[in-house]
Simulated scan of single mutants.
Amino acid sequence: MGEESREQGKLELIAFKSFSSNDELVYIIDFLNKSLKDKKIMFGLTKDKENQQMTINIYEF
Rank of each mutant, 00 (worst) to 15 (best):
L36W: 13
N51E: 10
E4V: 15
E12C: 12
I14A: 12
T46L: 05
I29Q: 01
G9D: 06
L36M: 15
E4C: 11
D30I: 04
R6Q: 12
E3T: 15
I14G: 13
G9I: 01
Y27L: 08
D23I: 10
S35R: 10
N51D: 07
E60W: 07
Q8I: 09
E3C: 11
T55A: 04
K17Y: 02
S18I: 08
S35M: 06
F31C: 05
L32K: 02
I58E: 00
L11F: 08
F31M: 09
L36D: 03
E60N: 11
S21Y: 12
K40H: 15
V26F: 04
E24H: 06
K37C: 05
D38F: 12
N22R: 05
N22A: 09
I56M: 01
Y27Q: 09
M54W: 02
L25N: 00
E50A: 03
D48V: 04
K34I: 05
I28E: 12
K10G: 08
Y59F: 15
M1C: 14
S18L: 07
K37V: 01
D30R: 10
E50V: 00
Y27A: 07
D38R: 08
N22L: 06
G2E: 15
S21F: 11
E60M: 11
K34D: 15
D23M: 06
E60V: 15
L13N: 13
I14W: 12
F61P: 03
L32R: 01
R6V: 06
Q8P: 00
A15I: 09
T46F: 04
F31S: 08
L11E: 10
K39T: 14
K37L: 07
K10D: 11
D30K: 09
D48E: 10
I58K: 02
A15G: 14
K40D: 15
N57S: 09
F43R: 03
S18W: 04
I29A: 00
I28H: 10
L32H: 00
L32F: 15
G44Q: 00
S35Y: 05
K47F: 13
F19W: 07
F43N: 03
M42I: 01
K34H: 09
E60G: 05
T46N: 07
L32S: 03
G2Q: 12
F19K: 01
Q52L: 08
E50Y: 01
K39A: 14
K40I: 06
Q53D: 05
S5N: 12
G44F: 01
R6W: 05
N51V: 10
E24G: 02
K40C: 12
I58A: 05
K10V: 13
G44P: 01
Q53A: 09
M54Y: 00
D30Q: 13
K10C: 11
F16W: 14
S18G: 03
L25V: 00
G2P: 10
I14Q: 12
I56H: 01
N22H: 06
I29Y: 02
E3V: 11
E50Q: 00
M54P: 02
E60A: 08
F43V: 04
I58G: 00
L45V: 14
K49I: 03
D30N: 13
E12Q: 15
N57L: 09
V26G: 03
E12N: 13
L11K: 07
E24A: 03
